[in-house]
Simulated assay, not measured.
Amino acid sequence: MVDAAHQEFARRLALFSINVYEKLSAQKPGENIVFSPFSIQTCAAMARIGADGETATQLDHGLGLVSSDADQIAHSFNQVLAAYQNSQVLRIANKIFVMEGYPLRQEFDQLLTKEFLSAAQSVNFAQSAQAAATINGWVEQRTNHLIKDLVPASALDSDSRLVLVNAIHFKGSWQHQFPKHATRPETFYLDAARSIQVPMMGLKEWFRYADLPALEASVLELPYKDSDLSMLIVLPNSKTGLSSLEEKLRAMTLSLITKELQETEVVVKLPKFKAEFQVELTDIFQQLGMSKMFTDQAEFGKMLQSPEPLKVSAIIHKAFIDVNEEGTEAATATGIVERDFVSFEEPIEFLADHPFIYALIHEEDLPLFWGSVVRLEENDSVSSEHDEL
């Protein structure tokens, strides 16, 4: 991808990430959120390739696509999808399932196969249990059996016509792993009044770090081994500063944030956390101005061989993340590469003891995952004196 084109693609995806995150946060207050903006955008863009008229225009604007030209849209996604086609670290599964008896146009199917690396598939939604088994079997196989039972049979029926499925699973090892012996119970502040004891990992190492007054937050980048992926953690200065940070992030792109990062010796305290998050995205898409695709007036004339009414019945998304000492999801621990730096200054402390936002990013600015940690499980039933307030 040409640098300028990549940057514009990443900038638009980051804005889409924040838009979706805002809606999900409002829909599920107090929950840890994790989703893949790239996976959602990719899957919806596959449907956009088959759309025209107002349906296409709404998708172009709502998704923040780089172009209104189908070939250019498809090619912009191919750059990233191709990079992870055979990855053992990141598994992306996107597919369009269409009702049997609705033959697809050859040009549409060829573009999906060539650029999105995923052909559409016909199923009989009327046989809901069998259709769900077909979809779930495909997702499970594509994610190396890590994501199962994505679509419940109850989500499908004889009226279903078009189901967009996207699932993503990431399994990476930190470039600098946290020593297990350094993990100990420490306080995590849920809000101004409540706190709990959680397993807090600890490590002193050189990382890219920045203090950003414009965000009233500090930012830490934790790179993954043997990849161009890293986790960016944005920690508000205030223990109750998450909602203010969410608003400020609208005005500062990921690329601007990562440009500010400097190699710094940092004492990191980060809680272990895991989140599994499944959501049906129809409401979110409608709130973002993409509503026609779900109605009987939806225009998907470029998808089918003959003009027939076709609308999206469901957009089902599932993401899973598990952050521990070795990395994200369990991975085999191997030797740690040490870097030789000499510092005469006190290391910076990055203490993630209150709600924060994180993004798992590709090449510094393209968000593959986006999430927040707002609550954690109590560690060993140790409770804070504030808990009952």
Rank of each mutant, 00 (worst) to 15 (best):
G101V: 12
Q7N: 14
D296S: 07
E388F: 04
G50M: 13
D211F: 05
E276I: 12
N166E: 02
P355N: 11
I168G: 00
F356M: 14
R11P: 00
L376N: 14
R161W: 01
E31N: 13
Q127S: 11
E216W: 01
S76D: 00
Q7I: 02
A93F: 09
D322N: 09
K225Y: 10
L59T: 05
A217D: 07
H317V: 13
S17F: 02
I315E: 00
A120F: 08
S122R: 03
A352V: 10
I321T: 15
P307T: 04
D60M: 04
I96Q: 12
G50T: 13
Q88Y: 06
F344A: 09
S195G: 12
L90F: 07
A298E: 02
A167M: 09
F108W: 10
S67Y: 13
R375D: 08
E385F: 15
G371R: 05
P236D: 15
V337P: 00
C43E: 07
F9R: 14
N124Q: 14
T57P: 01
E263Y: 05
F188P: 01
R375M: 08
N144L: 01
G301A: 09
F9P: 09
P307I: 03
T42F: 13
D157H: 15
I336M: 13
E329K: 15
A217N: 04
G371V: 10
A298N: 07
L222Y: 00
Q88H: 14
R208F: 13
A51F: 04
N136Y: 15
T282G: 00
F170G: 07
I321C: 02
S68P: 06
A167V: 07
F16Y: 14
P185A: 04
L164Y: 00
R105C: 14
L310D: 03
Q72Y: 03
A51M: 04
L368V: 04
V268Y: 07
N32A: 15
T143C: 11
L254N: 12
F344C: 11
E325V: 05
R105T: 10
L104H: 03
E263H: 09
A275L: 05
N78G: 06
H145L: 08
H145P: 08
K302V: 12
L59W: 12
R184N: 06
M201N: 03
G62E: 05
D228H: 10
I196D: 01
L111R: 04
R12A: 02
L212A: 14
G50S: 15
F294I: 15
L190Q: 08
Q85C: 02
S384D: 09
F108Y: 12
C43V: 14
D283I: 11
K311Q: 04
L220R: 03
S68A: 05
A4W: 02
V139G: 01
I96R: 00
V2N: 10
I168H: 02
V323G: 06
